[in-house]
Design a protein around this nucleic acid. Structure first.
Lengths: 345, 345
DNA sequence: CTGTTAGCGCATTCAG
DNA sequence: CTGAATGCGCTAACAG
């Protein structure tokens, strides 16, 4: 048992196959034609030696590492169960383009680490998640000339490629659905403004469009903006339900608060959806199905967003498209049975 | 505007500082002593040129890449909100040891990709999450001689380093707490057996210890094992509550099912904790606080586990400890107000 | 305390 | 269709 100390190198393969080292490279890349005969010998030798090209050497000699980083600042809001859809979809698309996706968990503020890792020549491109309206990571990537794509938008929408949900559709779709069921007085539980402005830029428009659509449909809105916690949602809902003309439906855009709202609704003896309709915006499937009752929702196809972002980046990296590209994902309605016709009184 | 085409190299720094190239390296690593005078000149030159060592070249020439992969098969159960604690803690510990943590999202079954990435010489070590009782990734890592540490245990506990929760403490701690509040008849909602055996190895012991502790404390147990979904939990709880001698407390080890159980409890008009006590095992803080009411729980300090795992691996990588090491994290009780004294009838 | 010299494993000219 | 020669940027002996 000598124990193979080191991995086989290209030279080992060349020797065993009886060809020159560069021929092995060409057999691998297909950059120039090779006789079937020699190719087979080389393939056999590679298999026998269990050869894997050394990524460092490839990276040094060539210009690319084959690595793409997904900047996923986990501290930003923790993980959401749906996030894995993004990751899986992006991983797959990039793999087909010859790139490995690695998740970079460091916080948005950790710009030094980001600058370091992209300056090191380790990373060919970056996909940014949890994008803020003004995102400091962008300057780092631009100044290091690193290709990148955003999942989300900054205030500056034109300069770089991004994909995002088309929030403008959400409000009208929600109103249309509930108004269609006869609801005329609808409660809205959103986020407090500071949450909005912090990073959730385009989301602000959701509410604007929602208000406009309500006007148009002749629906009265009772809007509460509360912090993202259960208690706040419960209190807000109790308040609205105890008004002289209580709402018959709730549009939520604040997951924890809606859980509190459900509690308030149920503890009043109201059944969902028979007595009260519930519709939530922008919630992951798992989160929507983890409450009781499950929540009918309007959101975006996360996997589609991620796939598109990955394709944008891959095209940029392979040079097949250098232009700035944008993509707005359509709103997706998912019926989980929490809405119904307005109750007859 | 010439536009700096390429990044500055070590040679550029050496030239500007008027020293030899290797001296620059030593100034960086501190592997040998350097006069303050020259060090300063070198540092200045690096700053002026905005120099960052090329990771590929470092990796090729040296033996290490400085990269550690966290095998985090996201498809396994999606993300849990608490997972980011693992990641952050491990990232930090490894950063201090000079390693960058990257998350590797590919599925457990994707052994080819795993083999490829570790054979490429890109990855110095691996931390495995979502460990199964028989985990195929281990063979790949062993055969490629890649250092690794498990978060979780396999059936084979002795051969490799791991960290894990000390599940054996959970049952007794739960019984002790509830018995101390006077509860004598306790419901248990666990997972169906196939879920156990699939991957959740040591967890089986949790129930064994729980049963033993109940015997000792003179507590009667009503155990239901159900699939991990809301409906199953609701039905199980309704069944148990409608028995002749209904339980006064619930120990849950099945997050979705407990949500259903809460629904069943509340809809009977029972208040938590005044009329009924609820205690859940192994739940993340966020999940526990996202339900209404929040759930008192017994679990493990995830960050501590991750920190320890990272330290084990770092020691292995830096050679400061080659031995196999194990760590069992103590049970942690977190009171969120869902348990109380048994109601007087 | 500092400089010189070999490679690390591979991609890519350049020749044939 | 194939081989030989250079160099990617750096580490680590080896020499002072």
């Amino acid at each position: 048992m000598s124990g193979q100390k080191r991995n086989a190198t290209r030279a080992d393969v060349a020797r065993l196959a009886g060809v020159s080292a560069s021929t092995v490279t060409y057999a691998l890349t297909g950059e120039r034609s090779i006789s079937d005969e020699t190719r087979k010998r080389i393939m056999d030798a590679m298999a026998e030696l269990n050869y894997t090209p050394n990524a460092m050497a490839q990276g040094l000699a060539g210009r690319r590492s084959g690595l793409v980083a997904l900047s996923f600042p986990v501290g930003e809001r923790g993980f959401e169960s749906s996030d894995f859809e993004y990751v899986q979809a992006a991983t797959e698309v990039l793999a087909r383009a010859g790139y490995q996706l690695l998740m970079w968990p460091n916080p948005i503020e950790d710009l030094d680490s980001l600058r370091r890792i992209v300056s090191q020549g380790l990373i060919d491109g970056v996909v940014l998640m949890e994008v803020r309206r003004e995102d400091p990571r962008i300057e780092v990537l631009q100044s290091t000339r690193t290709p990148f794509v955003l999942i989300g938008r900054t205030d500056n929408e034109t300069e770089f490629s991004w994909v995002d949900a088309d929030f403008s559709q959400w409000g009208p779709m929600a109103i249309h659905h509930l108004a269609g069921e006869g609801h005329r007085h609808i409660a809205v539980i959103g986020l407090t403004e500071d949450m909005f402005t912090a990073g959730y830029g385009p989301v602000v428009r959701t509410e604007q469009n929602l208000v406009a659509a309500a006007h148009e449909a002749g629906v009265t809105l009772d809007i509460e903006r509360v912090p993202a916690n259960i208690r706040a949602g419960k209190e807000a809902m109790e308040l609205m339900l105890s008004s002289a003309t209580p709402p018959t439906a709730l549009i939520g855009f604040n997951q924890p608060a809606v859980i509190g709202a459900i509690e308030a609704i149920v503890s009043r003896g109201l059944r969902i959806p028979e007595d009260f309709s519930l519709l939530q915006l922008g919630i992951s499937a798992e989160a929507a199905e983890t409450t009781f009752p499950a929540q009918t929702s309007i959101g975006v196809d996360s996997a589609l967003l991620a796939t598109t972002a990955a394709r944008f980046l891959a095209d940029q990296l392979t040079g097949s498209s250098a232009e700035v590209r944008h993509f707005l994902g359509d709103a997706v309605f998912t019926d989980r049975g929490s809405t119904g016709p307005v109750p007859r009184r």
